[in-house]
Design a protein around this nucleic acid. Structure first.
Length: 193
DNA sequence: CGAATTTGACCGGCGC
DNA sequence: GCGCCGGTCAAATTCG
């Protein structure tokens, strides 16, 4: 198996997503602690450098299996929507020059949700929207609105079942989640028994 | 009125 | 080299 992991899980009710620490969370932690009244985490796909897996195709084709797909080259002639998880991302600098760089950490989640944007504790700024080939649903691009934080996420509805939302996080936050900061500043009140 | 979002244009990568 | 496609920029527009 390559350095990617694929898990399928029905997540027990518990705590909020991405509230663990100041980074993209540990996937097992998220799986253990995912909870939100509006969404249900169904699948997640952890992708590290070098993975060539395609989240959308993986999610779409693996709903009934729990083993990882063998890595596949994105093929323009197939019905795979290329680019869900690129091997590396490009960052465009001023003057439309792009600098290729390793993204380091990617993780994709498939959640059943009526809303597109999960409240993960971070503040995101939308910077693009794109209709992708072979998908009726547009893909939305978000960037962490914290200055200096380069984390991005892509949000797209599952092309086979629009009731599912596929969210791909890319990068690691270099700051605390505003939610964590807020909670840590609150006085600790313990219930009396 | 400043911040956030929308959206058309542009760019680079890749396959042919 | 050309065309397709995904990703990003940035001006225009909308929102609070």
């Amino acid at each position: 198996m390559s350095n990617s992991t694929f898990l399928v899980a029905n997540i027990p009710q518990n705590t909020n997503i991405l509230s663990h620490n100041n980074t993209i969370p540990d996937s097992s932690y998220m799986l253990d602690n995912f909870d939100h009244p509006s969404y249900e985490l169904v699948d997640h796909l952890l992708l590290l450098d070098g993975s060539e897996e395609d989240c959308t195709s993986t999610f779409s084709s693996c709903l009934s299996q729990t083993t990882p797909l063998s890595p596949q080259k994105t093929n323009r002639n197939s019905d795979v929507s290329a680019g869900d998880v690129p091997r590396s991302s490009t960052i465009k600098c001023r003057g439309m020059k792009r600098v290729k760089m390793d993204v380091g950490y990617r993780i994709a989640f498939r959640t059943k949700s009526a809303i597109d944007i999960m409240d993960d504790g971070f503040k995101w700024r939308k910077y693009g929207k794109k209709t992708v080939k072979n998908s009726p649903n547009p893909r939305n691009y978000y960037r962490c609105s914290d200055g200096g934080c380069n984390v991005k996420k892509r949000v797209q509805r599952d092309r086979e079942d629009p009731s599912y939302v596929i969210t791909t996080y890319e990068g690691v936050h270099n700051h605390e989640s505003p939610c964590v900061v807020y909670c840590s500043q609150m006085p600790l009140i313990l219930p009396k028994y």
